[in-house]
Write a protein that binds this DNA or RNA. Structure first.
Lengths: 348, 348
DNA sequence: TTGAAAGCGATACCAT
DNA sequence: ATGGTATCGCTTTCAA
């Protein structure tokens, strides 16, 4: 035994099994509880103890097992994020912001993407077993789903969704106000003949934008605006314009689109297939303010959603609900920010 | 007590605490182990027992606690996905595919987004405590990081990254082959004066694309191609073209861009600031095959990465490594698919 | 301040 | 096929 420099240290490090608090305790010659305490923020540990334990932990590459901790504390430090259309250009930004804010708050993100909005049922079955501390949902849930959250005492915050039949916390962009800003600016600029290219009928946000547009137009005395379209895709914008033009009656003055990508598709159809260039011959507006909206070929007039504020609100609301389950439900509505580009004649 | 219809059933359901296997056992009048077995796929349970337990579970809304299960089985059924640039248009698609495939395979995804590639250190500290079964990393990790994976016996698969100094599994798109296809087609179409707009110098993929381009050009006897640019943004494409034109010497015949978004920025700069329209006056090619590449205003000639195959490969490799840790490391390289659009004069 | 011991909610092995 | 019991790795009383 003489001359050995490192006892079983190396063995511990290279052994397959992850290092536990017992290993650290043994190595440091203290109790296992002491190790645990050293890794708990506000615990009462002597300086000396802490130093010894931390040194041992460092040496062995110890990291507390979050799974075991969750079991006893009944806090997983996990939240689930449900997103329906990651391919919608708007969501990657939201997701990036959400995960970053959660990380900063010491919470991990379990991601669930739904390909169809109807998948919620199955996805929730996958969520429950992990005892997540809360859920941020940017996907359509039914009142029954929301009731299950209540029953299970799992805090829920909707992002750009909500249900008016039940009480639930949510963060939204004010679609109605945004649409109003767009239409008013177009109207002021002299447009009278409008058309609407709507999003998917099963998207609350999409329906809200469409409805708000029709309402505002009616208030302005315009009642004959055609409504086309059925999803959030470029193709929807493109094809809807072709339909619109094929219907005869000449081009509209202005087209209200379900979102930016639809607007981009519409602009391309007008230019490529019908020789109409914005803002000279036609005005097109979008919604969301995604990256490509500012690309020179499109330069959209649109409503930019304040994503950073909205994600911040969603995360902080959820964390508050986790800390204080009796927190009253709250609906936070953010106004979008008008961006005027050259896709429309517009008067602010 | 006479006349009561439902004993403590309702209490169990509405009580705050999640339902455990003990609750179910009591309710069904069987042992707790029996309940556990009923939820384990291949266990030996009588039909009668299963029916009774399942009924009780259903009634109480029982879902096995995945956290507790993980603790004893040493399998979290969690994998971590590390992504550096969610705002890079290419990644949302990758992420959506990855999570969907993982869900299908019964594995949950813990998402970590890195804002700077250098953040890997801190992020890994957040990953280890959750005892994830494996990691898919589309972010730059150092050999030291990879060594830590080895030490901890955590399977790792790189997605569009790799390190040639260490042995690690990875799924990549063949950048070199893709670039070659692009350049050869451009060369064949008569282009001789090339320029390169590169991506970020700390992106392996970006550097590889640039290097491959320079090499191929050299093989074709072209040695004076200027290299500009420094990231994957639209602005990079836009500004680099302006720089290129400001340098004098007239426009190049063809521009090789780090990715599609850069190519789009370049096309816009040529058209808007210099009156050069593709493919008549200029040829521009991109890489990735993201959605906007097919928009009519750009219609890029580009290399489409076979995302579905690549994500499928990544997930199945990781799952295989989880099942069989001694699995040899493997590098799977997929050829990109040429898409010819009208952003370049091109000869196949 | 420290250590011993009791859970957290499941799985797994062992008898029966 | 079923029930009893040890165990996973931690946190949390409770004494000392």
């Amino acid at each position: 035994m003489a001359g050995r420099t490192r006892p079983d240290k190396v063995v511990s490090i290279t052994s397959g099994r992850p290092v536990t608090s017992y290993d650290v305790a043994r190595h440091a010659g203290v109790s296992q509880s002491a190790v645990s305490r050293c890794f708990k923020p506000g615990a009462s540990v002597s300086k000396k103890m802490r130093a010894r334990v931390m040194a041992a932990a460092e040496e062995l590459g110890y990291q507390p097992n979050a799974i075991a901790r969750s079991l006893i504390t009944r806090r997983s430090n996990l939240i689930a994020v449900l997103i329906s259309n990651l391919t919608n250009l708007y969501y990657p930004e939201v997701l990036a912001e959400l995960t970053q804010r959660c990380s900063a708050a010491g919470v991990r993100v379990l991601l669930f993407t739904l390909s169809r909005e109807a998948e919620a049922d199955e996805v929730l079955q996958l969520v429950w077993p992990y005892r997540v501390d809360g859920v941020i949902a940017s996907a359509q849930l039914s009142p029954a789903h929301v009731a299950e959250f209540e029953k299970r005492n799992v805090p829920l915050v909707f992002y750009n969704r909500y249900l008016n039949s039940v009480s639930v916390s949510s963060v939204c962009c004010d679609q109605e106000d945004g649409v109003r800003q767009l239409i008013d600016g177009l109207y002021k600029a002299g447009h009278r003949k409008f058309a609407i290219i709507a999003g998917p009928p099963d998207s609350v946000v999409g329906v809200e934008r469409k409805t708000a547009a029709l309402e505002r137009l009616e208030e302005l005395g315009i009642e004959d605006a055609p409504v086309l379209g059925e999803d959030y895709s470029y193709e929807n914008g493109f094809n809807s314009v072709n339909e619109l033009m094929a219907a005869g009656g000449g081009p509209p003055d202005a087209v209200i689109c379900a979102n930016d990508v639809v607007a981009i598709g519409a602009l391309d159809a007008f230019r490529v297939n019908h020789g109409l260039v914005a803002p000279r011959d036609i005005s097109v507006v979008g919604f969301d303010g995604v990256g490509p909206a500012t690309w020179k070929s499109y330069d959209l007039t649109t409503i930019r959603q304040p994503v950073r504020r909205m994600t911040e609100a969603a995360v902080s609301m959820l964390l508050a609900m986790i800390e204080e389950p009796e927190m009253p439900r709250e609906r936070r509505v953010f106004s979008g920010i008008l961006r005027t580009g050259s896709s429309a004649k517009f008067a602010e």
